[in-house]
Nucleic acid binder design. Structure first.
Lengths: 221, 221
DNA sequence: CGTTTGTTTGAAATAACTCAACGGGAGTGG
DNA sequence: CCACTCCCGTTGAGTTATTTCAAACAAACG
């Protein structure tokens, strides 16, 4: 359970699938930078309903807020085997402004999280199942591409259809049906932990949300 | 349009209903503290779908992020007449740590926003219309209560049913039906810009989300 | 090589939506 | 102060997106 102790000497730590990177309310005097693997932050109801709030991919800081609040709020679980680097708060604060893992960089990651949540509130509140899924696939594609993890039109996709369901807030069965339609239309092909994006433009058109074109008065008939 | 100029001499500024406190991508070298009135941050689609992302109530800092990013990302509109105090970044940075409007306080407000968004992602993704509405009403009640704006079991409620719809991500008609049920069951009574909470405990039971009781392995059949 | 975990399918049930219309009330202008 | 809007709340009926349940199949795993 307290694996942190054995890990203390080294700065790198690894987690097996389903292992927790954080538990609710746990104290945290460091921030993780994911080097390899995927992790998810989620919330669940006693009756079993689960909603994934954040997805952490390689290169992401895993919970920049820990720097400010000193503790985790929601559990974070490894979706695959994960390798991460542990960055003690003290070390982050010591870094010069434009160095890697500096305060600025971490706070910036926090702002990115905030904006990503705005996006997902919008998605969950106002988009259809298909739109949400396309949106998610686009987001993943571009985040992976930014880290050079897309070769040709293919990238790793460790999420199960249950995971998709818990991210976009629909049922697993429905995820399956939507994915089949997308595949049928030649947009994306998900199989065997891999994703092949056949028509990124079309996928974006279905999923991408245009930021308010002209700020008009809301609900102007 | 550039009303800020006329407002510059005084630190207090006011907005009429439907006036913008911020527009997308506008530069901001200050943070607002709402003194009176309500405002909403939202995002919309060309086809008219709107989703309210954040609600600002009296006492709230209106966009603590502006302090870090120097600009607004989403439009913010006044839902009622609003009076706010303009806090230039420089002044916030100059304040001692535990003074009012200090850096710490503002960053703390930012963390609160982040957590509130987690909550709403969960709500929108996994709760039913009734649960979402109860949850919203509870949240508003407690935020207003914290500012001493609830007398007996009554508080102001400037939101229209269209606003509710755009917050909880359902249709206005359905909002109406759910509210009627709640009224029928003697939980809340919304009328004429006022809310009367008749049975807070029951309302909470329907709406409040228990933070994961026991962090268990997700989807453990 | 058996067992578990994930995907696919069908059919029936339901939550929520759309459209359309009506009524009240609050403000506005004459 | 009255009449006229327009905004907002309310209702009904029919439609659609999504869910649930259940079962079969495929693939990954140890």
């Amino acid at each position: 359970m307290t694996q942190d102790m054995t890990r203390a000497p080294s700065q790198v730590c690894t987690y097996r699938r389903h292992e927790f990177l954080a538990r609710a309310d746990e104290r945290k005097d460091y921030v993780l930078r994911i080097e390899e693997g995927w992790a998810a932050q989620y919330r669940l109801l006693p009756d079993g309903r689960r909603q994934i709030i954040t997805l952490f991919l390689p290169g992401d800081y895993c919970e920049p807020q820990w720097l400010l609040q000193g503790r985790a709020t929601l559990p974070i679980v490894a979706l695959t085997r994960v390798r991460a680097r542990m960055l003690p708060h003290s070390r982050i604060q010591a870094r010069a402004p434009h160095e890697e893992d500096s305060m600025i960089r971490v706070l910036d990651a926090m702002l990115a999280l905030l904006r990503n949540r705005e996006k997902w509130i919008f998605n969950l509140g106002r988009m259809t199942a298909t739109e949400r899924l396309c949106n998610l696939l686009c987001e993943l594609h571009s985040r992976l591409a930014a880290r050079n993890r897309v070769v040709q039109d293919r990238c790793a996709m460790p999420l199960t259809q249950y995971d998709f369901a818990d991210i976009v807030g629909i049922s697993p069965v429905h995820v399956n049906r939507v994915l089949q339609t997308l595949r049928g239309e030649g947009l994306v092909d998900l199989k065997g932990r891999w994703m092949q994006v056949r028509d990124l433009v079309a996928l974006k058109r279905l999923g991408e949300v245009p930021l308010d074109p002209e700020p008009r008065v809301p609900r102007a008939a």
